[in-house]
């Protein structure tokens, strides 16, 4: 069995040396990332929805919020699939804000000798201003900047139960 694989690998190396190197590089990359417990993309991608989910009292979603109307802004009335990025950005804002040095991969990256400063956290402070402009560019019906906030909204059965500023 082993000699058959070895023979096939050697003949493949002779015929297609460049692709052989690519095969080996990709294999090393995947195995290396697995051993070092790095993010193994794209293998890890579909781990989405892999955890069991138990019934919740409320379902949380971070959304742009109109303080005057006291309700979230409908991100689903936008061009194309803009709503996806409008869902992701405020969610990641919360995740990054609450991570050490504003990077959830901080521990792993530190192991690989990457240095961090507070610059990324400083930048995050301007998120709401930037997100306000982004929402406007997506033609959302927006209040004035003063009446705009990104909030955690709690839903159940299609009803808004409550909302609160994002905890950092």
């Amino acid at each position: 069995m082993f000699s058959v694989i070895k023979h096939k690998a050697l003949s493949f190396l002779k015929k297609h040396p460049f692709i052989f190197v690519l095969y080996v590089l990709i294999a090393f990359l995947y195995v290396g990332q697995l051993i070092l417990r790095m993010e193994i993309t794209p293998l890890g991608y579909f781990s989405l929805y892999s955890q069991p989910m138990l019934p919740q009292d409320a379902y949380v979603q971070n959304l742009p919020f109109d303080k005057i109307k006291n309700q979230p802004i409908d991100i689903y009335n936008t061009a194309g699939t803009s709503f996806l990025i409008l869902e992701i950005l405020p969610t990641r804002y919360e995740v990054l804000s609450n991570a050490p040095f504003c990077n959830p991969a901080y521990d792993k990256l530190k192991q690989f000798g990457m240095s961090f400063n507070n610059e990324e956290c400083q930048n995050l402070k301007s998120f709401e201003d930037w997100f306000y402009t982004y929402c406007k560019s997506r033609n959302l019906e927006m209040p004035s900047r003063e009446d705009f906030e990104v909030r955690q909204c709690y839903f159940k059965n299609g009803k808004l139960l409550s909302s609160a500023p994002i905890v950092k």
Binding site: T78, G80, S82, I85, L96, N103, K125, Y134
Partner: peptide, 25 residues
């Protein structure tokens, strides 16, 4: 379609995020 949906790099170029994942790329 992505550019129409606000997913072009010119839509997010000045986003305050500068995320680096623990990934070789």
């Amino acid at each position: 379609w992505f550019n129409y949906s606000g997913m072009g790099l010119h839509h997010v170029w000045n986003s305050p995020f500068d995320f680096k994942g623990a990934d070789f790329t």
